[in-house]
Simulated assay, not measured.
Amino acid sequence: MSEPMHPAAPHHLPFFVPASDGADVLMVIMGIFLVAAILWAGTLYWKLHSLPERLAHKSQKLQFEIVAVLGLISLFTHMHVFWVAGLLLAMIDLPDFSTPLRTIAGSVERIADATPVASEPASEPGPAGDPGAELASKVQGHA
């Protein structure tokens, strides 16, 4: 049933030569290694791609949203300039302009809603023909 080995054939074959039953152990090992390497590289790429978003997570909400949108645009268009822009924007601390402006707006509203202080009664205008008396009364009212 089994044929005798040819006299010129080596008696010991290396491990990478498949057995006569067709089982290729090295191919199975390399297949598992390839799948693991692809998953590892994909995870590394995903971590690297989300780096700007992770950096901007502790910043203001608007800055985080802009960085996230730039990351998505970069992911879908494969234009790396958006990723670089998102990374640079995430590394910059933008000053908070909204809080001082909101405080100013609140102060102006309080000033506008305040009741005016009772002013002095207006002095009687002088005679109609005397413009100097009318001017003098206006100056006294503002002094």
Rank of each mutant, 00 (worst) to 15 (best):
K47E: 05
S50H: 06
L51G: 00
E53F: 04
A56L: 01
A56N: 01
S59R: 09
Q60C: 00
K61P: 01
E65D: 07
V67N: 00
V67D: 00
A68L: 10
V69M: 13
G71P: 00
G71E: 01
L72H: 08
S74K: 00
S74D: 02
F76V: 13
F76Y: 09
T77L: 11
H80C: 02
V81Q: 13
V84E: 09
V84N: 03
A85E: 04
A85K: 03
A85S: 13
A85T: 14
G86H: 03
G86Q: 04
L87V: 06
L88R: 08
L89Y: 04
I92F: 15
L94T: 06
P95C: 10
D96N: 15
D96V: 03
D96C: 05
D96K: 03
F97C: 04
S98H: 09
T99R: 14
P100C: 10
P100L: 06
R102K: 13
T103D: 15
T103Y: 08
I104H: 02
G106C: 03
V108W: 03
E109Y: 10
I111K: 09
A112E: 12
A114W: 11
A114K: 14
P116E: 15
P116M: 11
P116I: 11
V117E: 11
A118L: 14
A118W: 04
S119Q: 12
E120F: 05
P121N: 06
P125Q: 08
P125K: 07
G126D: 01
D130S: 05
D130L: 04
D130I: 03
G132E: 11
G132M: 11
A133Q: 08
A133N: 02
A133C: 02
